[in-house]
Design a protein around this nucleic acid. Sequence first.
DNA 1: ACTTTAAATGAGAATAAATGTCGTTGAGGA
DNA 2: TCCTCAACGACATTTATTCTCATTTAAAGT
Lengths: 132, 132
Amino acid sequence: MEAQDLKKAGLKATLPRIRILQILEDSKERHMSAEDVYKTLLDLGEEVGLATVYRVLTQFESAGLVMRHNFDSGHSVFELDSGIHHDHMVCLSTGKVIEFQNEEIEKLQKAIAEEHGYELIEHSLVLYVKPK
Amino acid sequence: MEAQDLKKAGLKATLPRIRILQILEDSKERHMSAEDVYKTLLDLGEEVGLATVYRVLTQFESAGLVMRHNFDSGHSVFELDSGIHHDHMVCLSTGKVIEFQNEEIEKLQKAIAEEHGYELIEHSLVLYVKPK
DNA sequence: ACTTTAAATGAGAATAAATGTCGTTGAGGA
DNA sequence: TCCTCAACGACATTTATTCTCATTTAAAGT
């Protein structure tokens, strides 16, 4: 029941928002660009503007429903926030995105920030890999 | 003697290239955007087009003279390649960029890629921090 | 030093991603 | 069901970057 999720997040349950949330949930790809979402909407025969897709994804990000990533592709990709923190590995041959977790790296990052007198707020770690 | 460095890198020693390399060497900021470099050129009274700045920076990157980074700012920044690998910490309050090295994290990254059957080609680690 | 020639440049048009504007529409409380 | 304001669609605009093409220039050959 998506409409409830939206209201819980403080967002009016409009049709575009419901559809976009469904697409993010149902899509094969966990990581989609705004264009990807837009094209999927068109394929489904929905009449939603591209500007709305951008607006909605940004709102979802603010509401904590999705996370935005800037891989080295020149545009943002979005994924549903699973609540479980993880980083990403991008295959340079296939474009496939793999998620991973590593508690040790997390600790080291925090320690490094503190060594320099800072508090770690956020971080971005992406491994670019190729099949062996 | 910059002209020699350029020739060693397989690039013709043209005036725009020499000037841009000098700016990257002399600038207070180690990390500059294409616009930053362009503005500095204008301040110096040089007649170099913005397109040339972009072209040259991209060539420098290919030649291994500079490294390009995509922090979460919507545009690329460039720094002279010191040859010494390091990652970056960006202060969210001041925009200051701090470089750091951590051998342990490097090892863990390599291990993670290999656990998944991949070879680590490249990686991007940025810590977003605030003063304590 | 002078000519030649392919590579590099400058100016401005073009593109891609994303955001802003504004008149219209629709969700949801009265 | 009606009313109101938030949300929307269409399209203009902005920002970062790349492309096009006529002109210039570095540097190899004479």
